[in-house]
């Protein structure tokens, strides 16, 4: 506590750096994952290939992935871009599975009804398929958000500023309070992000609560699949 009270500025600064480091991968990862998830859901062959490749990418441990990045991007070793791209890769790898599962959870009868009512494929996707896949997408996005926020701390090992700095500095100077501050601040960011996502979900998907029993099963199943890495 004593450490925290005299280092507020540093902690705030790192909190902002951490948020700035973790938001782009979550957003970009989500945007990339939707079309990939659609393709994965559309054809059986593509589902196998896409999920296999992303599963392998997700298997690459974080520090090695940060270190590989300069090879592919031509960036300097200590560049924050390495961490952003690596975290985006993880986010895509996690999210595509949820996207495919979410799109699959939409009742085919509903899609046929939409087509019968004259929706084109494009309209049907945006107005029917995507919103109905929403709850599963949201569950996936919450997992992505929590894991990205946590992984961003590793960036400090390769010299990219984040709350992980408090761990490393706290270890070198032997100040447990500093390390605890870092852990708590990371958890707080993760919880705030999670609450924001739930809030956005409530606003965008107001029907999902009414229909909650059926959805809860799909959501729980998708979450279990993500947790146990079943793929």
């Amino acid at each position: 506590m004593k450490w925290l009270s005299s280092n507020w500025d540093l902690v705030w600064q790192l909190v902002f750096a951490h948020v700035a480091l973790s938001v782009p991968p979550i957003v970009i990862g989500f945007v990339i994952a939707i079309p990939l998830g659609w393709v994965a859901n559309r054809y059986r062959v593509s589902r196998g290939i896409i999920l296999l490749v992303l599963g392998l990418l997700y298997t690459i441990p974080s520090i090695p992935l940060f270190i590989f990045m300069p090879l592919f991007l031509g960036t300097p070793l200590l560049s924050p871009v390495n961490v952003t791209v690596a975290l985006t890769i993880y986010a895509v790898a996690l999210m595509v599975r949820s996207a495919a599962d979410g799109l699959r959870s939409v009742d085919p009868d509903i899609l046929q009804a939409a087509s019968a009512m004259g929706y084109s494929g494009w309209q049907r996707f945006w107005r029917v398929e995507l919103p109905l896949a929403g709850p599963v997408l949201l569950a996936g996005l919450r997992v992505v958000s929590a894991s990205t926020v946590s992984l961003a701390t590793i960036g400090s090992v390769v010299g990219v500023s984040s709350l992980g700095y408090l761990f490393i500095n706290g270890f070198q100077r032997n100040i447990p309070g500093e390390v605890i501050t870092g852990i708590v601040a990371t958890l707080v960011i993760a919880v705030v992000f999670d609450l924001l996502l739930v809030l956005v979900g409530r606003l965008l998907l107001p029907w999902s609560r009414r229909d909650s029993r059926v959805r809860a099963r799909d959501v729980a199943r998708s979450r279990t699949a993500v947790l146990t890495g079943a793929g």
Binding site: V143, A146, S147, V149, S150, T153, I154, S156, V157, L163, G164, L166, F167, I168, G170, F171, N174, P176, V179, I180, G182, I183, T186, L187, A190, V191, R223, L227
Partner: peptide, 20 residues
């Protein structure tokens, strides 16, 4: 429990336990 642990930074935990 299994969901919440996902957000726990492993490096922080390791270093905290390392100090202890």
């Amino acid at each position: 429990l299994s969901g919440g642990f996902r957000a726990l930074p492993s490096l922080g935990l390791l270093i905290l336990l390392g100090l202890g």
